[in-house]
């Protein structure tokens, strides 16, 4: 009797601790989101998201941070496209052309996992040295290249996860009907489309939020870049720089920019979950 009692007590204590841990996680999410929304909503206005920084912007005069929004969109859009173009062939190569248990596939997966773990500041520093090597200044192009390098590992590893779970019987079926590898590829592509979508959303989230790498490579500017060789502002850096200002109006803009960034990321994360749920329902 005594033993089973202590068993029950242990069980209950453990459950209480686990609930505590989950409450902490929820508390943290709510605290972060609430902080950003309550500060950001106060500072938010139409002017913020629709106009460029005016004269005297950094001492609290009129203007907004449209430059950062557009800069971020340019960089994220271009690097997502580039990332997709590079990643999809690699994923197919790893999963269809190479046999299971291939050494090259192991090495490649390891390399991408390691690259995924490399801090963005190191990407920034490395990208910066390359830009100096080629005589480039901080520019939109530099930002796009570095962000592309940064998100390729995420693209590949996320798509790879989905493709690996893909039943190989379908491949065999396709091959046995006389399809070439290229034709089979199209069959696979249709099957893993939701995986590609999830990977894309994840990558966009990482790309739009990363500050350390674009700091070195894209620089910062008050205008919207009109060519690849001009510097570009980005949202995370807009938050970072303006938050350091001693002037309250400028700090308020940092909060508003943080709100815009958070809303974008929230939308991405919710739609990512939605796609995953839908996908797992239709799974074979």
């Amino acid at each position: 009797m005594k033993i089973s009692n202590s068993k029950k007590i242990h069980e209950n204590i453990a459950i209480i601790f686990m609930w505590g841990a989950m409450l902490i996680v929820f508390g943290l999410v709510i605290s972060v989101i609430w902080t950003v929304f309550s500060k950001g909503m106060k500072a938010m206005s139409w002017e913020m998201v629709s106009s460029l920084p005016g004269g005297g912007f950094y001492i609290g005069k009129e203007g907004g941070f449209l430059n950062a929004i557009v800069g971020s969109l340019y960089i994220v859009g271009a690097s997502t496209l580039l990332g997709l173009l590079i990643s999809i062939p690699v994923v197919f190569f790893l999963n269809i052309y190479l046999k299971k248990g291939s050494k090259l596939a192991y090495a490649a997966r390891m390399a991408f996992d390691v690259l995924f773990g490399v801090p963005s500041i190191v990407y920034g520093a490395f990208g910066f040295t390359i830009m100096i090597f080629f005589g480039l200044r901080t520019s939109l192009l530099g930002g796009i290249i570095v962000i592309t390098l940064l998100i390729i590992p995420i693209f590949i590893r996320t798509m790879d996860e989905v493709t690996r779970n893909f039943p190989r019987d379908i491949l065999d079926a396709s091959f046995s009907l006389g399809a070439t590898r290229w034709e089979t590829l199209k069959v696979v592509l249709r099957q893993i489309a939701p995986g590609i979508a999830t990977a894309t959303l994840l990558s966009i989230g990482r790309a739009i939020g990363d500050a350390a790498s674009v700091m070195f490579t894209a620089g910062y500017t008050d205008s919207i870049p009109t060519s690849l060789s001009q510097p570009a502002a980005t949202l995370p850096l807009a938050v970072f720089f303006q938050l350091q200002s001693p002037i309250p109006e400028v700090v308020d803009r940092a909060y508003a920019a943080a709100l815009v960034l958070t809303v974008i990321v929230l939308i991405l994360s919710i739609s990512g979950r939605f796609i995953t749920n839908k996908f797992s329902k239709n799974k074979i």
Partner: peptide, 14 residues
């Protein structure tokens, strides 16, 4: 998901 997706700079603001 939300915790994982929030950018570093937002955590900085928080």
């Amino acid at each position: 998901d939300i915790l994982a997706g929030l950018p570093s700079v937002i955590y900085g603001v928080w």
